[in-house]
Design a binder for these strands. Structure first.
Length: 423
DNA sequence: TGACATGATTACCT
DNA sequence: AGGTAATCATGTCA
């Protein structure tokens, strides 16, 4: 015999219980064996309530509630319900924390959407700014602040939505709890059941929260990809950076392979990353090799520029009463201490710039003005159409594979020997 | 708007 | 690991 049958059987003895027994489930159980007829009567009364008018039903309900056996009956019913229901669902109650929620939480924390406002996300923003390739002082900070602004927007939306969910959850929970408490007067609802119901509500709401977290994560991922996809966010290097790179390239034309140290120094000087320097040189080499003619003008431009810079530095050195050693000056406006190639640029000035075809180891101030006033400071390709008599064949082999026979260095005056080959 | 310039990426090579 | 060559994707300019 199960509890329910026993209880129903127990109801038969309601009339025979003393007041002292009321409220004691054991006393109810003691009444097993009382006529089943009484149970049927009570049940009929209960069922009949639905057929009665509201007032009558209320009155009858009140009468039943006031019945001396009601607390005992109620308690037994609660006990039975608790046993049966909890045994079915007890296993599900203690579910472990969802790994997906944990992942989402971790990500939101790492991205700075949840958790403390300041710390999180700045690393991602910095990465985004760095990947965008902008200089730290200009474009980089713009990218950075833009990223942060959008992240803050996401954060704000996330928190306001989360707050709404939490508020709705607590309101709904209170409502349900009140309802259950109210109902617990008339039907068997144990506190544990209410507790479990609260748990169910919280789980439902947390699944909604998970959706919110998921969509927030997606938004952050999209934002990140937009800012971190450097290809999408390609920015041309600024003029100064290009000049610095070109100066190095053309002053090391025979071996335009900067060492790691040189790359680092160039990167620092141009406010770009070392890999960007590598990219630039890779592109430059291949594009120069493919179309030397196109770059001839540029090469000469930088040759003149470098020579002029060198001359002014040299002149300054002379004025400072220093010994007039040809190579004592710097290697032009661009100086790299580690290249071991600093003298190379000294032979950069195109042959026609110093009429006699001598290596322009030094350009005096008077010559500098000559350079400045040259009718055509940047010789065109025609000037090098027959380069052999004038120009110095590049001794290195970096261009050989494609244009070995035609490649010349317009930057080397006749007879000049540079130290690039050692590089 | 199309052509060209240019920084980044990728596959492959040494 | 670093280079080349091809290619992509975006910026710039007439």
């Amino acid at each position: 015999m199960d509890d329910q049958t026993r209880m129903l059987a127990g109801l038969g003895g309601l009339g025979g219980l003393s007041h002292a027994d009321v409220g004691d489930p054991d006393s109810v159980r003691k009444q097993l064996g009382q006529p089943q007829q009484d149970i049927g009567d009570i049940l009929q009364q209960i069922m009949a309530i639905t057929d009665e008018s509201l007032d009558e039903a209320q009155a009858r309900k009140h009468a039943l509630n006031c019945h001396r056996m009601k607390p005992a009956l109620f308690s037994v019913l609660c006990e039975i319900k608790e046993k049966t229901v909890l045994s079915i669902r007890g296993v599900q109650d203690e579910d472990p924390p969802d790994p997906q929620i944990m992942r989402l939480d971790n990500m939101l924390l790492a991205e700075g959407v949840s958790g403390p406002e300041k710390g999180g996300g700045s690393a991602a923003a910095a990465a985004a700014a760095a990947a965008a390739g902008g200089s730290p002082g200009s474009d980089g900070s713009i990218e950075h602040s833009d990223y942060r602004a959008k992240l803050a927007q996401i954060r704000q939306i996330y928190h306001s939505e989360l707050e709404k969910y939490e508020q709705a959850c607590s309101e709904f929970t209170n409502h349900v709890m009140n309802l259950l408490r109210e109902q617990s007067r008339t039907r068997p609802i144990s506190p544990k059941e209410i507790e479990r119901m609260v748990g169910i509500i919280h789980r439902k709401f947390s699944s909604i929260q998970m959706q919110l977290k998921q969509s927030t994560c997606e938004a952050v991922m999209i934002l990140r990809s937009r800012f971190l996809d450097a290809r999408r966010k390609r920015r041309n290097f600024n003029k100064q950076a290009t000049e610095v790179l070109n100066e190095y390239f053309y002053s090391h034309l025979s071996n335009p392979y900067p060492s790691e140290e040189a790359k680092e120094e160039l990167a620092k000087k141009c406010a770009i990353t070392v890999s960007q320097v590598s990219n630039w040189f890779g592109n430059k080499r291949i594009r120069y090799k493919k179309n030397i003619g196109k770059f001839q003008e540029e090469a000469n431009l930088y040759a003149v520029k470098t020579a002029v810079d060198a001359a002014s530095v040299s002149a300054q050195a002379s004025q400072a009463n220093s010994p007039a050693t040809p190579n004592s000056g710097s290697s032009g406006s661009y100086k790299l201490s580690h290249t071991g190639d600093s003298a190379a640029f000294l032979g950069l000035c195109p042959a026609h710039l110093n009429g006699a075809g001598e290596a322009p180891l030094n350009i005096a101030p008077s010559q500098q003005s000559q350079v400045d006033t040259l009718p055509r400071a940047t010789p065109l390709m025609e000037d090098y159409e027959d380069p052999l008599p004038h120009s110095f064949h590049v001794s290195s082999s970096w261009q050989d594979s494609a244009h070995a026979s035609s490649v010349t260095s317009p930057l080397r005056p006749p007879g000049s020997v540079h130290s690039d080959t050692s590089n």
